[in-house]
Design a protein around this nucleic acid. Structure first.
Lengths: 201, 201
DNA sequence: CTATAATCAGACAGACCGGTACCTTTATAG
DNA sequence: CTATAAAGGTACCGGTCTGTCTGATTATAG
């Protein structure tokens, strides 16, 4: 019960029930697990009526998908911001991305990669949420391949995929054994992988 | 209902109800997700009575922990076998481990690392199953550090942790984008990481 | 002022959940 | 042969789950 809800249509300065649902569900699903959180909990914390949830999303699965889509949007916003801030050097972009990931992972609220999480909780790849998650990972891989090309790697597809491997590894480790030395380990590994694909090697 | 169960104590050549429960739960939990599978499904497929489950384990959480412990046991059995088969060269051990992981991951029934999965479904690290999972990852990291020491790495702790990062990355990727090129990507990354820590570098 | 669309409130349904209790059956050990 | 331990069968409990339905309320657009 975080929100004092009001009956009737929302004022123009108020967030819509849809937005409140996505915001609340994003946090609850991520912190406790999707299957662990019932819609009643989401409704209570967001102050939204059950009928409004089902009018907007039709099912819990579709709410899950909307949450995943919102996380995908935020993720690429974060990524694009880092790309723009380091536009002159693709290698700096890659390094900044990994530094950013270390910062995300080091937060006490970090609970793993939300895309991997939904894919694990809903292994059926046709699940609408899992479909969003898989698309996200595909795009990450492609973007890292493009950065590898820009870095002049001999085998950019390989380097990109290896960097993606490292990223997902960081997520997985954080869930089980935490983040000690993660920054140094990760950045040194990135450097070794990039240098191993450089032309002057 | 896979098993035709019989009333009364098991014959000596029959597996105990406990073993059947663990075997069935291991498969069902892994394929569909732990929270997605109710104990009634485990009971139906194993042919065990509900009272027997609770006499043996006390709760679903303890069954989850027993399943994780069994997977941990199998995992180290697999690992030790690879170490023994390549006892002369620690580098060959590492490469064989990664080749083995690629083979596991490439199987159609592969559904991610079971230890990461339980930690994601039950983020509370005091959960008995998650505790087993975290201990497994800790030991993997330590064993890879030992192998890195045996390989003569300049910074064995770092190399070991980086190899662990790569392993968990492979698990995460397999859940979302499959395994194309995984073998080459992974083995080449392992080589780059090891060579980057070698004395003759 | 009125029509409309968005919202909250709450009761309800039917399935499923983990867990308990009690009783019967059977293999084995002594 | 008998005691014991391990097991299956089944009914049941209270809680929770997703989802439906009906109705009252309110801001905004025209």
């Amino acid at each position: 019960m975080n929100v004092t809800a009001r009956r009737g249509a929302p004022r123009r300065d108020e967030p819509s029930a849809r937005d409140r649902l996505i915001a609340t569900a994003t946090e609850l699903f991520y912190q406790d697990g999707i299957r662990a959180i019932g819609i009643d909990t989401v409704l209570a914390k967001s102050g939204v009526a059950k009928s409004t949830l089902y009018r907007n999303f039709g099912s819990k699965d579709e709410l899950i998908a909307a949450v995943a889509a919102e996380q995908d949007r935020r993720f690429w916003q974060w990524w694009d911001h880092i790309e723009q801030a380091n536009a002159r050097s693709p290698r700096m972009v890659v390094e900044a991305l990994f530094i950013g990931i270390v910062e995300l992972i080091s937060r006490p609220t970090f609970r793993g990669c939300p895309f991997i999480n939904v894919a694990i909780e809903f292994p059926d790849r046709t699940h609408p949420g899992t479909a969003v998650a898989c698309a996200n990972k595909q795009t990450v891989r492609q973007r890292l391949r493009e950065l590898s090309t820009a870095m002049g790697a001999r085998n950019p597809a390989r380097l990109g995929d290896q960097l993606a491997l490292l990223m997902d590894g960081a997520y997985g480790q954080a869930v089980t054994i935490g983040t000690s030395n993660l920054r140094e380990d990760l950045l040194s590994a990135v450097a070794k992988l990039i240098d191993g694909e450089s032309d002057h090697d």
